[in-house]
Design a protein around this nucleic acid. Structure first.
Lengths: 234, 234
DNA sequence: AAGCCCCTTATGTCTATATATATAGGCATT
DNA sequence: AATGCCTATATATATAGACATAAGGGGCTT
């Protein structure tokens, strides 16, 4: 077994612990030695061991409870982290040129489904935008957005003809809560045309609602061009 | 402004820093004071401030670089954490009864696309499974799975008629790396029938590849019943 | 102007130690 | 058997001080 040398960093300790879990030296559901004991074994300190175990717990390998001790979870890694970049970044980091176009801008009373979804009063005027994001000349994402002007000062005066609402909102309005969903939708005629797809094609779709201290701010439906994948590694 | 009292915990400090970012006291792209200075302001220690800032950086609010200092990110690249539970848990936690059925089990030479995708030698025999997961009487998920027997001892003797390969693999084979993708696919005749959908319907699909120390272990395609959403809150 | 070296500085990490807090499990009481 | 209290213990967090390491920037050289 990996003989614990002296001067192990918290990273080393993490690795050793992970190895032992993988090799079932510490089986699922079993209890690890206490931090104090591990610190002694690794000739390290409790602080360092603590950091290692804390991070492994955050990563979903361990479960820790005061007094109860540290336990190996039986089904590890139940969390996948997806970075959710701005479209702009996603495109430019891919080496393509980012291009944006405003398709439509209207102010209208919120439709009933939107009121229900975002919990806003019936008939409130909202800003509705449709826009396209291109990677080079290829369509990348079709964005349908609703913004509650009451929560966003000056949004009705903002100019969205040259840059997208996302860029603007990120600059001007912080948010405190976010709900993000992924789903598959069927391209209707309009979406299909914008994305260069066939009507009826499956479209990977993200739906994003943000709030600022309980106030609903904006809902965005993001339709990705055919072939899009959202990938995470861990 | 919130007058920094003494004895602030790293949580308190995180909150104060977050507030200042939201209130643009520390604007996007601007540099924060050094840990040493903040420690003094909060009458705390550098260690405590360090933990607060480190966690905020992990959460995507700050960017930290040695010598360069700590900077407010202009677009908080918030990371969405998705729980990826075992199907079984996802269904039972929803209050439904979990039911499983094996549809097909074969051993065959790996098709070319699989060899390419998983980086395994041409013509290697692999175990191929198709199974269904039901929530009560409703179809929930159709699973198409490929397992590399070379990496998984005894898998050819395992009985998958009563419980799914996922349950079995979790128990027997740890993994060190995982790639998880979400995408939208079009239901073919077979998938549609299993999921109670129409051929051509958009299907939310997850693709999952796992490795054990560089060795490819298994690839699973998970087709979810129509209407499925993967949701994260933060 | 471009390249190189060195110094300074901010973060990264470790050690050693102390206090706080939740709680499992035992013991006593109802 | 159920309830309530106590205590030992494992984790959670804070403090103080040290050394490690990356990297920005100035100044020198070519």
């Amino acid at each position: 077994m990996a003989a614990p040398r002296a001067n192990m960093s918290y990273r080393d300790i993490k690795q050793v612990v992970l190895d032992r879990i993988h090799n079932k030296i510490w089986a699922p559901d079993s209890l690890l030695p206490s931090e104090t004991d591990l610190a002694e074994e690794f000739s390290s300190t409790r602080t360092t061991v603590n950091r290692a175990l804390r991070e492994l717990a955050e990563e979903g390998y361990l479960e820790r409870k005061r007094k109860a001790g540290t336990r190996v979870l039986n089904s590890p890694v139940r969390k996948a982290q997806f970075a959710i970049p701005l479209v702009r970044d996603e495109i430019t980091e891919n080496g393509s040129e980012y291009r944006y176009a405003l398709v439509e801008r209207t102010v209208l009373p919120a439709p009933a489904w939107l009121c229900a979804r975002m919990d806003i009063p019936q008939g409130l005027d909202v800003l509705h935008l449709r826009c396209m994001h291109y990677a080079g000349s290829a369509p990348f994402q079709y964005e349908v957005r609703w913004i509650v002007p009451d929560s966003v000062p000056d949004v009705l005066e903002a100019d969205f003809s040259c840059s997208g609402p996302n860029d603007w909102l990120v600059q001007k309005v912080p948010f405190t809560n976010l709900e993000l969903s992924f789903l598959a939708t069927k391209a209707d005629q309009s979406v299909a045309e914008f994305l260069g797809a066939q009507a009826g094609d499956p479209i990977f779709t993200a739906e994003r609602i943000t709030w600022l201290r309980g106030q609903p701010v904006t809902l965005a439906k993001l339709f990705f061009a055919p072939g899009y994948r959202m990938t995470a590694n861990l």
